[in-house]
């Protein structure tokens, strides 16, 4: 089995605002292995973005990591100074932003911008060698006519090209871990497919572990090996992607999958949605956090256990885990 590049244990992130404390991430733990693509799905506010930022050590104030550990290879990120952490970012773990158009510095030419990473992390690299490295990496991510593009500004590039540049910046120093934050949401479908293809190539070529954060179950099914389903700050289900998608073990995952509109055939009268809204992170409910919106609970006649006892993330067969008192009833 491939080496573990990222190990997250019991991670908790809190935001305290005017006396009330919101625990946006609550006891999240998972691994990413070399050459593996792990999907992290969940709706807005499920804690997936905060988890991602916590890995990078970039939780915005007033948020802070209150518990847990993050290990990258054999380095415990919690023990690093801010400076050491910054040196790790962009080199051993890199981020691919969701909207490259907004994430690139609008006033800096593409070439100079790609070069910033080299300058920051490889100070010994002779200046004269930078342009060659920049062109190399841009060529590798399939940017057409890179020698022409390096002279242009971000806004002069198409969305797909901007995203390729962002990927180039992420992979140029051969990181162990690549965190892709919804890298395809701002793109149209054909470009989406190209970028996904590119990520698969990156994994293939350099054995990078990729954490793929998204709210889109279909993309997860397309490229991920394993998937983590997040809800209300916790992982509610995890496992190999094919099994989770074909036989979900948690009612929330099931509901997410049901919400994907079917391809082909007549469009449905009404799109399937999950009724209700996620609970308030300032006051998580006592029992299962999904109980309020759970179709299974309703079907089982509202067992008292669901609202009184918080379920554990229990091990099922073959690397699968689910946080539900009635997992068997979901699988059937």
């Amino acid at each position: 089995m491939a080496t573990v590049v990222l190990q997250v244990r019991d991670l908790a992130v809190e935001f305290s605002l005017r006396g009330s404390v919101a625990r946006a991430v609550d006891g999240v733990g998972f691994d990413v292995r070399a050459g593996e693509i792990v999907g992290m799905v969940g709706e807005s506010g499920s804690g997936k973005s905060v988890t991602m930022l916590a890995l990078l050590g970039l939780v915005p104030r007033p948020g802070r990591i209150v518990a847990g550990s993050v290990r990258l290879r054999d380095i415990d990120l919690g023990t690093l100074s801010l400076r050491e952490l910054a040196q790790l970012r962009g080199r051993q773990m890199a981020l691919i932003p969701s909207d490259a158009g907004a994430a690139l510095n609008p006033v800096t030419r593409i070439g100079a911008q790609v070069g910033e990473g080299l300058a920051a992390h490889l100070p010994d690299l002779p200046r004269a060698e930078r342009p060659g490295r920049i062109l190399d990496i841009l060529r590798r991510v399939g940017l057409p006519r890179p020698e022409h593009q390096v002279r242009r500004y971000p806004h002069e590039l198409s969305g797909g090209m901007q995203q390729r540049v962002a990927v180039a910046m992420g992979v140029q120093l051969g990181p162990d871990l690549l965190i892709a934050d919804e890298p395809t949401t701002a793109l149209d479908v054909t470009i989406q497919a190209q970028i996904l293809r590119l990520l698969l190539d990156v994994r293939e070529q350099s054995g990078t572990g990729i954490l793929f954060v998204t709210h889109d179950m279909t993309t997860v099914a397309e490229i991920c090996d394993r998937v983590l389903v997040m809800y209300a700050g916790q992982i509610v289900e995890s496992g190999p992607v094919v099994e989770v998608c074909t036989a979900p073990a948690h009612p929330y995952t099931r509901a997410l999958l049901d919400a994907i509109p079917p391809l082909g055939g007549d469009p449905p009268e009404q799109l399937t949605t999950i009724p209700g809204a996620p609970p308030d992170p300032r006051a998580w409910p006592a029992g299962c956090r999904f109980a309020e919106r759970c179709w299974l609970r309703e079907r089982l006649g509202n067992p008292e256990k669901c609202t009184s006892l918080a379920p554990d993330l229990a091990d099922l067969e073959s690397e699968r885990r689910s946080r539900c008192h009635f997992t068997e009833a979901v699988v059937r």
């Binding site: 915005p60 970012r89 962009g90 932003p97 992390h121």
Partner: peptide, 26 residues
């Protein structure tokens, strides 16, 4: 508040470089 500022942090650039080259410059 612009997204390119956290992205610059994620790239591991030095805080000085971010305040001058990104924030002040923009």
């Amino acid at each position: 508040q612009e997204p390119f500022v956290p992205f610059a942090r994620a790239k591991g650039l030095a805080p000085r470089k971010i305040s001058i080259g990104y924030v002040l410059r923009n």
